[in-house]
Design a protein around this nucleic acid. Structure first.
Lengths: 284, 284
DNA sequence: ATATCGAGTTCCACTATTTGGAACACAATT
DNA sequence: AATTGTGTTCCAAATAGTGGAACTCGATAT
């Protein structure tokens, strides 16, 4: 099997099937590619826990035998991907920070999108997000807001569920049906607010509407008092699928206002895509 | 060998000997622990390149055979740790962002230090940094400054050389001699400015001064026009060694001002250590 | 003191995965 | 059409990972 050539729709499908740790829910340990996959799967277990986990806790979730798990943890620690606390609990290692800083700074997509996000922010005055689809999660790549009081890491890199975020639903809307069905089938629906869409049917209906209009909305589905409009963004071959959104507090931003921004958000998405095509080669 | 029990000085030693990618300089590929180590080593090669590298470029640096390297890259891509661009070049994957966001948010040390950093910033009005020692690099964990205009990721997670940063030299000063010599021996000295210390002798002399006073200074050694005072910070068993610093532009911050802040910086470091001892158990 | 229990660690014969040389595709160049 | 450079695939041999069971250590109970 050719693994590197998983371009196009296959990538999206593979991504959807990739090991996932539901942002809110139980982590489903799922072995990945060989030895590395198993190690990363252990890392993921530690990452998706709220509190640092101890050996036995991890043992219970990963279905690895004691000896094996112990060695995997040792290796992870030795590589700096995990660190072990005095009380034998594990936390993610600092080496990850270094990698992530490079990953972020070097991300071509983000670099290209950045000025467009700023423009969109200037026109709307509200917070602008850029997030990419990864399995059943959206990973936020960038954020532009006026008051930079909130710390960057509190948002960037964060993973949120696809089914209840504007960016997530926008991204889903551009997937071809077969891929979409696979992704939707693997979503772990969870109610966050009274407005959360909690069944595949509700989500699919919304996605149809998004496909028709080109915009998705988060109607306080993830967090009470928070609304957004978003538009999808993708490479021609769907090797990546993302979304831009304008988010604001419900008391200040009415649905009508969001609707009035919808076209601008779509336009921003198109402009970013144009820029990518011209700067990363015409076949993008 | 017991890998998990590498507490105390051994950890520092192990860290010093760990695979490293010099922040500025050539990456020295160095195989790590088994299969995982090799994979991470490949990741590191990609991470320490300025531009995305293509297969052959990586092949030249990693001394792995073609077939092997190809599979390693495939696995890394499949795990989302690496992503492959259209032109067959590799960049770091977005999954790393998710891991790092958790690593940062969950870092106990950082959480405890944060309020102290803020206080220090309020007293001095200049930028405060918190960085930890990792091999011959310092990884910045946090940053407090007035104008949050600069984006977070541009600094946090960044790795800088130990030998020409205040935080780095402060951290080195608390290592026991044998460990210190090992670390210094593996430093790749490189001149950044006219003031950079470029020989082990110069560095060791400075470290003696730091040991005597309890403060290190960066006298425009890393970047022209930038100065700082720092103080070391460490756990009793040296399982981690770090530093706090106050940094400012030379035109505004004279050496005299830095000296007047020196005691306050030391005090901040002590307070953070106290806090850690009380909150993470007395043996810390 | 001594026994008991739980948590973490180590050991080593067995086995599955990784290895790496060489052959194979594919594209761009000559 | 031939050549060169790059990336990809294959498979027997070698290596590294596996996992059950035994062991150590510390805390709690007797």
């Amino acid at each position: 099997m050719n693994k590197l050539r998983e371009g196009g729709i296959d990538t999206a499908a593979a991504t959807a099937a990739a090991p996932q740790s539901l942002a809110a829910g139980r982590a489903l340990p799922q072995a990945g590619t060989g030895t590395l996959g198993k190690a990363i799967s252990v890392l993921d277990i530690v990452a998706s826990a709220e509190e640092p986990m101890r050996f036995t806790d991890i043992l219970a979730i990963s279905d690895q035998p004691r000896g094996t798990l112990h060695r995997q943890l040792s290796n992870l620690v030795e590589e700096g991907l995990l660190s072990i606390n005095r009380d034998h609990s594990y936390s993610l290692g600092l080496r990850l920070l270094k990698f992530a800083a490079k990953a972020w700074a070097g991300n071509q997509f983000r670099t290209i999108a950045e000025p467009h996000l700023k423009t969109l922010h200037e026109h709307t005055g509200e917070t602008v997000h850029l997030g990419v689809l990864r399995g059943t999660e959206v990973i936020y790549l960038d954020k532009v807001e006026s008051r930079q009081a909130v710390r960057m890491y509190s948002q960037i890199g964060n993973a949120s569920p696809v089914f209840c975020t504007g960016v997530g639903k926008a991204a889903l809307s551009v997937l071809p049906d077969d891929t979409l069905h696979k992704v939707v089938a693997s979503i772990n629906f969870r109610r966050f607010t009274d407005h959360t869409l909690v069944t595949p049917e509700q989500l699919m209906a919304d996605i149809e509407a998004i496909r028709a209009s080109g915009n998705s909305y988060d109607r306080e589905e993830h967090e009470l008092g928070i609304r957004c409009v978003a538009a999808p963004l993708y490479s021609k071959d769907l090797s990546f699928v993302a979304g831009v959104s304008v988010t604001g507090p419900a008391y200040r931003v009415s649905m009508e206002m969001l609707e009035s921004w919808a076209e601008m958000v779509r336009k921003t998405a198109l402009e970013i895509m144009d820029d990518m095509r011209t700067r990363l080669g015409p076949r993008t």
